[in-house]
Design a protein around this nucleic acid. Structure first.
Lengths: 151, 151
DNA sequence: CTAAAACCTCTAGTTAACTAGAGGTCAAGA
DNA sequence: TCTTGACCTCTAGTTAACTAGAGGTTTTAG
């Protein structure tokens, strides 16, 4: 329950974990990566301003989009510290990520079309096969990481 | 150069590596995962039938499609041993993979549309935001905390 | 005041798909 | 025959995004 008293209180890790649905250890981890930060109390325990909740929400959404944490961290750096992302911030970030998504969709579509063109050909020849020799790099990364690597 | 003499000769790892563009260590690795197999000569060195080249080609293409090695291994098991994949085999596998690709493209497209719908909203609310609460599963593998649970 | 719950740091393990290197063996050309 | 290069096995390291647990401290409820 939010009352005038606790409205401005800071949150413990456990509370942030419960409210954001992220594990405590994951919050430690995000902190170690610089995605969020905390103040410490007398006994060295983390205390978070409530803005952290929106930050974590942003992180989780970006992850759904398949953005790696490192990039999310970069994006978050563009926001001033000690402030939760606002609607305006979100607009900028989401527009960027939407473009990334478009790009990935295009790559996959291209690849699928090429594959369909190759069904039945069975050549897989090093010199001739468009599937083997396409020059483009497929940077496909989605939730559930893969390690596709350009040879 | 292929002559009647060496047409039937087996290949060494180094030769397979050179011709397939895959590192020797990667071939060892594929073998350890059961994706390819080798005969051994007197001195315990690997000797490959030339069919292995087509198998490796198949593996590389599947990887471009974003299929994990484990699944590629499953697919390869459907081919008889000691035989390179034929055009007919390829047709079956590629049709399957094409469907997988379609599915992934659909998921990404859905997500992008939802994101575009959310640009400017900035809510990211646990209860209301479609981006946060979308019921679909986007390869959410790994026992990660998610936010399905309530506060 | 005390016991339990929550917190702290740090190390190590997980999956995927490999690579790098150590330490030793084998094969081929001069 | 010798030397060089290719090969062998095995262990450990890499990235990403965490989780699990050990061993110890702090906070909180009764």
């Amino acid at each position: 329950m939010i009352t005038p008293e606790n409205l401005h209180k800071e949150l413990t890790v456990g509370q942030v974990a419960a409210r954001s649905g992220v594990a405590v250890t994951a919050l430690h981890f995000y902190e170690s990566k610089g995605l969020i930060k905390s103040n410490r109390n007398q006994g060295n325990q983390r205390r978070y301003p409530r803005e952290v909740l929106r930050r974590v929400a942003l992180i989780k959404v970006a992850q759904r989009l398949g953005i790696p944490l490192a990039e999310i961290g970069e994006a978050l750096k563009s926001l001033p510290d000690n402030r939760a992302p606002t609607a305006a911030d979100w607009k900028i970030l989401s527009a960027q990520w939407s473009r990334d998504l478009d790009e990935r969709i295009n790559q996959l579509t291209l690849l699928r079309d090429r594959l369909n063109g190759c069904i039945g050909c069975g050549c897989l020849s090093m010199e001739a096969c468009p599937l083997r020799n396409a020059g483009d790099v497929l940077g496909e990364r989605g939730p559930g990481a893969h390690w596709l690597e350009p040879t």
